[in-house]
Amino acid sequence: MDPSEVEFLAEKELVKIVPNFSLDKIYLIGGDLGPFNPGLPVDVPLWLALNFKQRQKCRIIPPDWMDVEKLEEIRELEKREEAFTPVPSPYYMELTKLLLNHASDNIPKADEIRTLVKDIWDTRIAKLRLSADSFISQQEAHAKLDNLTLLEINTIREFLLNSLNCMFKLRSNLQAGSSGRTFTDY
């Protein structure tokens, strides 16, 4: 899976916008949106919000968690805890990137938020790598990975799956060798 596909999925997340135009309810397959009235906040999917924003038809209200203090709290918690802590949104990384790239004028302290989210991401990836290593070295058969987001899983998926496959095969050698499997002709 490509990160851009993950981003595509993230674009379904709802964000609040304040439109500066009026439009009746629009009926889409994915659900009805609107009605849009100037100055009245309304929930729309991210893709629509970005589209309006690019045409300067709305102001995006950043999600509650996209705030320096809250993110600092999350970062500290993430550093302190050994396990993964719950993230504010299952698409926090994608949302941050898209919103900061397209609507940084609507988000206070955009640069700080970018650094904080990157810090959280780095901590979590380091943790993910650490747990993958201990998973392999202890030869565990299963693991519980709560609170991981799709994008995080996605960066390590291929590598981890391939190595687990290899390890499984090397391990089944072990059993085949000890049970004295009969050798058939080739």
């Binding site: 392999i136 590598f159 390890m167 090397l170 050698n173 060798g177």
Partner: peptide, 20 residues
């Protein structure tokens, strides 16, 4: 067989870190 498996496990961390 045991050595093969242990070697793989022992080297895994290095391979993972350098590749990531």
């Amino acid at each position: 067989a045991q050595t093969l498996l242990q070697t793989f496990i022992g080297r895994f961390r290095r391979v993972m870190d350098s590749s990531q």
